[in-house]
Structure formats: C-alpha cells, structure tokens
C-alpha cells in the first residue's frame, strides 16, 4: 500500500503529534506514505467561502501533483480531505470544470486517482485483524467517546465513507485496540471549528454540549481524526479536563511504541494522568 501523503498545514503546527503518530503507525502497518513534494494549502473553509474557483484551484494543485506521482492520495485532516475529495468529485463529473481547472493550474489534471482519509485506509484496507495482531498493550478499561465531527462522513455523496449519522469505523478501531467505545449522541455533531477564532461565544457553547454529552455517558476522553476539532475541543472546553486524543496516538500506544509519551506531552489538556491511572504510561 503506497500513497501520496497530504499532511495539511495543521499537521506542521498545532497537530504535530498527529503527524508523528500517523506516520509511525502507518510505517508499522506497512502503509507507505510518500509526502507530496511541495504540497500547498487546500484553501480550507476561507477558500470556498470566498471563491468557487479559488477553492477548486487551491485543492486542484495538490491533486495534480499527486496525479503526477501516479498514486492515490492519503489525507490526514478531514477538512483538507473534503476539500480535495470534493474537487476530485466535481472534476470527475464535469469535463468543463476539469478543463478550466487545468488551465487555471497550468498543469494537467484528469481526476484519475482517489482521495482517501487515513482512517479509511486503516479501517478498510489494513483491517481490524491486522491491527489486533499488533496490539501489545491493550487499552483495557479506557472508556472513550469516538468523535467523527463533520467532514469525515459528510456530505455522504462526496466522501463515501461510513454512515453519516451513526458511523462505526473509529468505534471498531478503538475496540480492536482493547478500549471501550461508548455509544453516545455527539458522534457527528459540529464543534464549530471554523468559527473558533471569530465567534468564541458560539463555539464555547457547541464544544460545551459535545463535552457534556461525552461526560454524560461516562467517557474519560474523546477520540478524533481531525486536527481542527482536536485543538478546538481542547482549547474551548470549560475547566479543561477532558483529554482529546488522535486515533493514531492511541494506536501507537497500544502497539507499544516508546515515542507515544512524547506525543501526549504536546496536548493542551494533558492525558498523562488518565493514561497512568490505567497503567498505560
């Protein structure tokens, strides 16, 4: 399994621990991630909220670069994932758009290669059996609420991954690691990430509701696959007690990777006490 890897801007800054853990886990599982040379920002929400063509072109540059390498793309950030997948989706369905996109980019783009999120690659292609085989330190007793957020599962027509209302992939993955994935109501609720820096009042309310829903079912931590959700949920929760993990960090921990301790030190809400109480650190 070889992929053109698109980390996205957050993985170079707020979410370095996601990048480090994702690369380590993929290496262990035999998923080769070849970082796309000179990748650029996907445009994110400011892009598509500003201009249709700017948004498609910013995503399109990266798609065209990956196509040149002849590989499907593996994306870490769900927000980048949707921007890239959406542009590919439109380009596949619409020859005029594809043509105009190539003109804007000054690069050929044929929409030949798929765009996948890392979680999709790990749950569908690697599979739970291979993951169970590698668990050295089961996460027994750890009670987790799996938080999918928006762009991993929506809009279903574009992302074509898991169920948009009651997804299971993260839950199954956490159970394969030996943790307890609790059923809860907040799985696909929006944390308001795109408004985190502009309307703190709205975001504090949305994050508060998600945290309360998770704590209400007895979760000790949240697990996410999104760097924007992770930093938003950590920084906008009141009291700052509920740790927010990346799924890849918990995989690394369960696989017995020594470097996992360093990832957890980077969190704004420290998970160290929780993990120590379960004998995992």
């Amino acid at each position: 399994m070889r992929y053109a890897y698109y980390p996205g801007c957050s993985l170079e800054s707020t979410a370095r621990e996601y990048d480090l853990s994702a690369r380590a886990v993929c290496r262990e599982l035999g998923v080769e991630l070849e970082e796309i040379a000179d990748w650029s920002c996907c445009g994110s929400s400011p892009g598509h909220c500003t201009s249709f063509w700017l948004s498609h072109a910013l995503a399109g540059r990266n798609l065209a670069l990956a196509e040149r390498e002849g590989m499907d793309m593996a994306v870490a950030c769900p927000a980048c994932f949707l921007r890239l997948k959406n542009t590919r989706h439109e380009a596949m369905a619409n020859a005029d758009l594809r043509k105009k996109l190539s003109e804007i980019l000054g690069m050929p783009y044929q929409a030949r290669h798929d765009v996948k999120h890392l979680l999709e690659i790990i749950s569908s292609e690697v599979g739970m059996e291979a993951i169970r085989d590698r668990v050295k330190k089961p996460l027994s007793g750890l009670r987790l609420a799996c938080y999918y957020g928006c762009f991993l599962v929506r809009p279903p027509k574009v992302v074509q991954f898991d169920d948009p209302e009651n997804p299971q992939s993260l839950d199954l993955l956490m159970e394969a690691l030996g943790a307890e994935a609790i059923d809860w109501s907040g799985k696909v609720d929006c944390c308001g990430g795109s408004l985190s820096l502009t309307r703190k009042d709205i975001v504090t309310k949305l994050v508060g509701e998600i945290v309360a829903a998770a704590e209400g079912v007895g979760a000790e931590a949240l697990v996410t696959a999104c760097p924007l959700c992770q930093v938003n949920l950590e920084s906008r929760q009141k009291g700052g007690k509920l740790p927010i993990f990346y799924f890849s960090e918990l995989m690394g921990l369960a696989f017995g990777m020594r470097e996992a301790g360093a990832w957890f030190k980077r969190h704004l809400v420290s998970p160290v006490a929780l993990l120590t109480s379960h004998g995992l650190l």
Partner: peptide, 26 residues
C-alpha cells in the same frame, strides 16, 4: 510548540500567486 515560530514558503509559491490572480473575479 503548537505554533511554528517562523514561516516557510513553498517552492511553488509563484504558482499559488498565479492561482489567486487567475481566479480573481471568476
């Protein structure tokens, strides 16, 4: 260490500038 102190510019930054120019007003 969650905020990079110094910016890095990609090699293809001219391509990005061209994308912004070409999509202006489109």
């Amino acid at each position: 260490g969650k905020l990079k102190l110094l910016p890095t510019r990609i090699r293809g930054s001219k391509e990005i500038k061209a994308i912004f120019e070409r999509t202006k007003g489109e």
